[in-house]
Structures are given as C-alpha cells and as structure tokens.
Design a protein around this nucleic acid. Structure first.
Length: 270
DNA sequence: CGACACACCTGGATGC
DNA sequence: TGCATCCAGGTGTGTC
C-alpha cells in the first residue's frame, strides 16, 4: 500500500493525536507480523510519553524518552486514531491506548508490516543503510548519476532501491520516470547527467504533490481520519495499461521490471 | 559487490 | 453460487 506520500499522510494524521500523549495500555492481538513484535514494546513503550512522530523513509518513528517505536506499514498496513473501546476487527493487530481516551490502531491484513523497538541511543539495523530523503537537498541528479555509473540494472530498479533514495515505490517510480521521459527498462549506467537532474526534480515534484493530495488510494489506503488520498486521479501511467498516454495518445504499456508491473509510454519515454 | 528470483500473507477481482 | 487463479502500494534473504 504505502509509499512515502501515504506514510507521510499517515504521520501528519496521527501526530496531533499522539504527540505529547502517554501510552496507557498496549493490546497485542497478533504479534506475528513480518517480525514478531518484541517484548520491549510491552515493557518499554507502556507508560512512555510520545515526544515526537517522525517519518524516515517509509518508517514511522514514535520517539519517547526511553527509545523509539518503529512502525512499517508493509503493503497493506494502516494506522488509525479511534475512540477507546472501538471494537476490533479481524486484522486489527495492535492498539496503543492513549491518555487522551483515544487509541492508535495498527491494522494490516497481509502482515508485511512491523512494529519494532529501538532503544535510546541506538540505530536499528533497518534504518542503517537507507539512502537520502527524496525531498531533502541531499537528493539530487548528481547523486543518481554517481550511483548509476557502471550499473547495468534497470533505472527503475535503482530508483526503487531504498539505498539509492528512500520512499519511492512502484507507483511513484513509474510516474517519475514518465514525467522525466525515461524508459524504466533503461540501464541505469546509460543515462546522462542532465536526464538524472530531470528525474530527481520530477521525483521531488511528484512526491510533494502527492503528499499535498493526501496520497494515492488504489484499493484501501485511508488516512488515520478515514479520508482517502486523491492523487489517484492524477496518475499518468500507473494502472493505465492499454489506455491512451495523456501526452501523445499512444497506448500505455505494461511490462515486468524487477518483478514489478511497470507502466510507461513507449513514445514519450526513451 | 551487483543482479536477480523468491519468500512472506491475505483479500479482491476475474474467469469458468 | 462456488472455486481456481492471478494480482497487489514492500523489502529482506539467498543464490550466482
């Protein structure tokens, strides 16, 4: 489900309800997510106050004075803020009850997501080798260019590699490459510096705009208040196989690239 | 190290 | 209506 815009939308949605609140109770209904929820969540997070809600890559970080709870939403995860006492449904795996009378509920049908604990002063392995944030100044065309030299893999695979730049998943990789006029299958090492400048600029523009629109709701993504994202209406190629390209009218194609369905216009993208 | 296939899991859409 | 099949927004792991 969520790429960077959806995770950021989630962060913005929960922050006003969670920041400054103390966790008064933790209900673990299914601890077997991608990795088992560690015992430290019970022992350390309970009674702790959430000082800040941060996003790093596609991870949400609940910072407390004792350490940080790390949440990843995987493909189908969702966080909602609900009144305490709201009955739980099948895939509601975790409730963090707050001293406000509300609860933060983690729902994740496929259980590709996780809830982990990072003790104060340490950096979790999962956060260690991440690339730069795409909306920061440390991400630009020169970084993509430098990283791409002598790489034969498809540019789309490199763009989706979280060690290159974080937060770009299948939807936004397709959309950014379309906007930049680059064929997703192109070998990363065969693309010029100016084209990478353009690509970096389009990644930034598209992600920023998607955040503004509340993310993309394809099937089931909802913000913590239940609102869908509105970026779907602005998708240019993703999910549009066989439909006319919005620029030139030729039909959008789909092809597997790096095991993921990839959408592009063979006329506009080279 | 890079490239690639695969695994994890469930629900919804599709086709017979 | 029922059932088999395919597909999905992510990413760590194993193999070459």
């Amino acid at each position: 489900m969520p790429e960077l815009p959806e995770v950021e939308t989630t962060r913005r949605g929960i922050e006003p309800h969670v920041q400054g609140r103390t966790i008064t109770k933790i209900v673990l209904r299914r601890p077997d997510l991608r990795w088992p929820i560690p015992e430290a969540i019970r022992t350390e997070l309970l009674g702790a106050r959430v000082d800040a809600v941060e996003r790093r890559a596609k991870y949400l970080l609940l910072h407390t004075s004792r350490g940080t709870a790390i949440v990843h939403l995987g493909m189908s995860g969702m966080l909602r803020v609900l009144p305490r006492g709201t009955p739980a449904a099948t895939h509601d795996h975790v409730d963090l009850e707050l001293d406000s009378g509300q609860l933060l509920r983690l729902t994740d049908p496929r259980r590709f997501g996780c809830l982990l604990w990072q003790p104060l002063g340490t950096t979790h392995e999962l956060l260690r080798d991440l690339g730069p944030e795409p909306l920061s100044d440390s991400f630009d065309g020169s970084l993509l260019y430098a990283r791409s030299r002598k790489r034969s893999a498809a540019v789309k695979v490199m763009l989706m590699d979280q060690a290159t730049v974080v937060g770009v998943g299948n939807i936004y990789a397709c959309e950014s490459l379309y906007a930049a006029g680059i064929r997703p299958t192109r070998a990363a090492g065969s693309i010029s510096r100016p084209r990478y400048d353009r690509l970096a600029a389009e990644v930034k523009r598209i992600l920023a705009h998607a955040i503004q629109r509340g993310g993309t709701t394809l099937r089931d993504f909802l913000a913590p208040d239940g609102a869908p994202g509105y970026f779907e209406q602005e998708l240019q190629v993703y999910g549009r196989e066989g439909e006319p390209c919005k620029t030139c009218g030729s039909l959008v194609r789909a092809k597997l690239v790096g095991q993921r369905n990839t959408f592009y216009c063979s006329r506009c993208q080279s």
